[in-house]
Design a protein around this nucleic acid. Structure first.
Ligand SMILES: [Zn+2]
Ligand SMILES: [Zn+2]
Ligand SMILES: [Zn+2]
Ligand SMILES: [Zn+2]
Lengths: 162, 162
DNA sequence: GCGTTGAGTGTTATGATATTACATATGGAG
DNA sequence: CTCCATATGTAATATCATAACACTCAACGC
């Protein structure tokens, strides 16, 4: 399966692999993977959840890596631009990509109860959206796909009303 | 086609029809379609584009219908909850629904050049997203689908680089 | 009639998210 | 060495959104 996020997994390994993939990608494309950028990605990877920019900034500040919003936002811009991190529009928050390096359109499953987020793949050009775009002559360059609902765990813990 | 928004159309008629549909829906469901709520919807309908809450509020203020943010946000909450208006997460803005009264999951085509927005239908349960949700046991309750790109008009006006 | 209640509105204050502008550092190209 | 591009540090501000409380008014039971 593609969508980890609602299940336990080898967290350390997943983090190490993601960092290695990003490092390789930056080396290959001559991108500067600076300490601040690296640390922001590490924070997101280690928490493995959607975090607000100011929440990330709090951690940076504690570590002496910058205390003002632009520091966090600039690092996030870099990471988002290069596909290492995704922004969850619905939450005004950011989350580390689970397939770094690969070119992909992410889709998210967001639990309204526990705020867990799972990343899946979307095919923006397929389906009704692609059809509508083609019919009107619209050129899709990028897509936001975010489903809200209940994750398996929370679904069970909700009391069955019927 | 379903997706108007990039083409000229009978604006007055479209506005009248939408207001009538919303009025009917409110009467049938015993919802209070108050002056503020009505005016906010009218503003969105007449502009026929995505507008920020504060932009709407400016108009309300000029008309003496309330000058503080909560006035606008409460009216928008009502309109969004009942499906008469949709929020465009990507723009932090609101737009009047083009199929009021019908139960539907909207998808949007947003032009990055001119900010025009067209509403299409999405089928959240279909496609890869529905598949991923089903596989993980996630229950989709609501979905945000927003495609960014270039509308037909802007696509032509952009200089052809090759 | 009259108090009660609930929904809507008006208003103040504040919180949360994001950007602009400018100063400073650093490392490579010419 | 000098110039330039990129990244970072910092202050100020812009933009988006909500909490809390007071007030109005219409519907309801008595
Ligand atoms: Zn991803
Ligand atoms: Zn959950
Ligand atoms: Zn709609
Ligand atoms: Zn356009």
């Amino acid at each position: 399966m593609d969508t980890i996020g609602f299940e336990a997994h080898d967290h350390k390994g997943c983090m190490r692999a993601a960092l290695a993939a990003v490092e390789a990608h930056c080396t290959r494309h001559k991108l500067q993977f600076t300490p601040v950028r690296r640390r922001v990605l590490e924070i997101l990877l280690s928490e493995h959840r959607a975090m607000g920019a100011y929440e990330i900034l709090d951690t940076l500040r504690d570590e002496g890596l910058g205390s003002q919003p632009p520091v966090a936002y600039r690092a996030l811009d870099f990471l988002v631009s290069n596909g290492f991190v995704h922004k969850i529009e619905r939450l005004n928050a950011f989350i580390a990509c689970t397939h770094p390096g690969q070119d992909h359109t992410p889709a998210f499953l967001i639990c309204r109860q526990c705020d867990a987020v799972a990343e899946a793949h979307a095919e923006p050009s397929k389906g009704m959206l692609g059809r509508a775009a083609a019919d009107t002559g619209f050129t899709i360059e990028q897509a936001v796909v975010e489903a809200m609902g209940l994750c398996p765990q929370c679904r069970e813990s909700v009391h069955p009303c019927a």
